[in-house]
Design a protein around this nucleic acid. Structure first.
Lengths: 325, 325
DNA sequence: TCAAAAGTGTTATCCTTACACCCATGT
DNA sequence: ACATGGGTGTAAGGATAACACTTTTGA
């Protein structure tokens, strides 16, 4: 019976590297699943005596674990349900063997696309590794094939289940809603497909055919994949009503690089001209006159984010002119 | 030195009563400020041994404290900073005298405009009592006069401060952004104007002229007014991208009642025809053929929310066609 | 009959979408 | 010269904002 509470802080640190959206991960000391090295997010316990705020605590141990300094930070969600394997469980920090209840506060951090330093134990991973079904930039991802089959087996005629699966995973002609990352992951978890589901029930690793296993993505320790899904949901949503992409860009960038960054986050291709026109109208960027030469074609003009634009008026995000295909 | 953590849950329960947006409040046992009865939100400690999830815990004690059953519930934010007087401080629940650090998880709940039951210790209060500057339905609220003066005294030539005050409180012709409720409250707190600021520093209640005092609204216990501000911010934002107003309406309602509800939340008058046209286009409501007779004028048709609309496609909220005045 | 609130019609303007085309560089 | 990516023009359709006006009841 737990009668005390420990607070765990986890950070989803997002960056753009070579046009890909990547997440900072750490390799915890001991592997959880036999044979495979399971990744986690940078995380640590909150010290009620020492730390003045969550955010300060978070910044401190992310730097410590990854030698990386956070820029933009925002709180995501606080998870408190029993039974979802919570962080710290294997850290030997708290009283240990489940005697204290662990509450998990997730944070989203955005890193400008520059710094590369990290410890040998931390790494940048594209998040499609963890959510292969979320990347529609090259059309409908192939991962959805096996997932659809498995979900239909799970639904097995149950109208409720079937309708949820249809809605979330765009089956039977339903339209894909890129913001529902968390709901999709939770559905897979509920359906017992996400690898973490079996683990949390104390069961053996799932015995799934290779094709399905690959489609379901890599698991993470604890509830970190859920926190990651929350982050992706939030970021995809936020893009549309606040100009946050710029937190991920270097000082000077080309419009194509900016578009690729948005595409990497949203997981869908955008319409070039309309994307640019929207930027222009919002007066969010300013040309620098300088050119980027190694583009492979005609040199591209470099732009900078007009931070002043934030002061002037209530500024919304970018419109996301998806190309329908 | 605190070395343990207690989790406090607080609920902002919103309802519409007689066209006004109201919040469920409780009167805590002992008054905090001399002479005046300070209100609080329904709140309670989270029991790590007994409660399976935050939400279940929350539902349980709101019902217990107010005899009210929550419908729609969503997590708002988790506050953990030291020094903001946190809930439970006077509840004798934890180890007591500040030995344990209190973390405060805020929730937003929406109640259909029907039930009236509550205990003698709980009550519905219009939130303009706590934020008199947030209601622009009758034009620029008079509370902004004294607030503007006080803020200018606080800024006193400091360009940073002045620019923040201008932006947040629409001074010098800046436009009002109704979503920034929390940022406005935090600015007032930082400026030492919000009554809670002095309290948290252990100082005497502020000695402010009556006019300013009234303009700054009623304080609440602990950090509850901050949580309330968070709720209002979130709700005002959410209205625009998810059809949440309907959670506040009874089964059948007139379009005017719906408009008044939105106006009460947003704190601004809306354009009638454009509001209706937007509703129509989104196919969010369906006429029932029945009429509401006691409208004071021509009877109005009753409508219902088409919950089915949610299933069909990714459905956004209402456009908020403000009337510029 | 008149006040009060419900409900409708119409237009200018702006934004979004979709189309196709031209430009500057490296190989 | 041609491939590659950068960058532009324009027109159709739809959504928004702003106008003022008609309808139906109760007092």
């Amino acid at each position: 019976m737990p009668n005390s509470v420990v607070i765990g802080l986890s950070a989803v640190v997002v960056a753009i590297r070579e046009g890909e959206a990547v997440v900072l991960t750490v390799r915890p000391r001991g592997p959880e699943f036999k044979g495979q090295q399971v990744q986690g997010l940078p995380f640590g316990p909150f010290d009620p005596a020492g730390h003045r705020t969550f955010e300060l605590a978070l910044r401190a141990f992310v730097t410590e674990q990854t030698r990386f300094n956070l820029g933009y930070v925002e709180q995501l969600y606080t998870f408190g349900d029993k039974g979802r394997d919570a962080p710290l469980a294997d850290m030997g920090e708290g009283p240990g063997d489940g005697a204290s209840r662990v509450i998990s506060v997730g944070y989203l951090a955005l890193a400008p696309a520059a710094l590369e330093r990290h410890t040998p134990d931390s790494d940048w991973q594209p998040w499609s590794r963890f959510f292969p079904w979320e990347d529609w930039r090259e059309g409908r991802p192939s991962a959805l094939g096996p997932i659809e089959e498995a979900l239909r087996r799970w639904a097995d005629g149950d109208a409720q289940r079937l309708s949820r699966a249809r809605l979330m995973f765009a089956l039977d002609g339903a339209t894909w809603n890129e913001e529902r990352v968390l709901e999709r992951y939770e559905l897979l978890y509920e359906a017992g497909l996400a690898h973490e589901a079996a683990r949390d029930r104390g069961e053996h690793p799932l015995d799934q055919p290779e094709r399905l296993k690959a489609a379901l993505g890599e698991p993470m320790i604890s509830d970190h994949r859920r926190i990651l899904a929350t982050a992706l949901s939030r970021l995809r949503g936020k893009l549309k009503y606040r100009p946050v992409v710029f937190e991920l860009m270097p000082e000077a960038f080309t419009l194509s690089a900016l578009q690729r960054a948005v595409e990497a986050i949203v997981g869908a291709p955008l319409h070039k001209q309309n994307f640019r026109r929207a930027l222009e109208r919002a007066e969010l960027v300013q040309g620098l006159g300088r050119l980027e030469t190694d583009t492979g074609g005609r040199p591209a003009e470099l732009f900078r984010f007009r931070r002043e634009a934030l002061r002037a008026r209530p500024v919304s995000g970018l419109t996301i002119p998806l190309v329908r295909d």
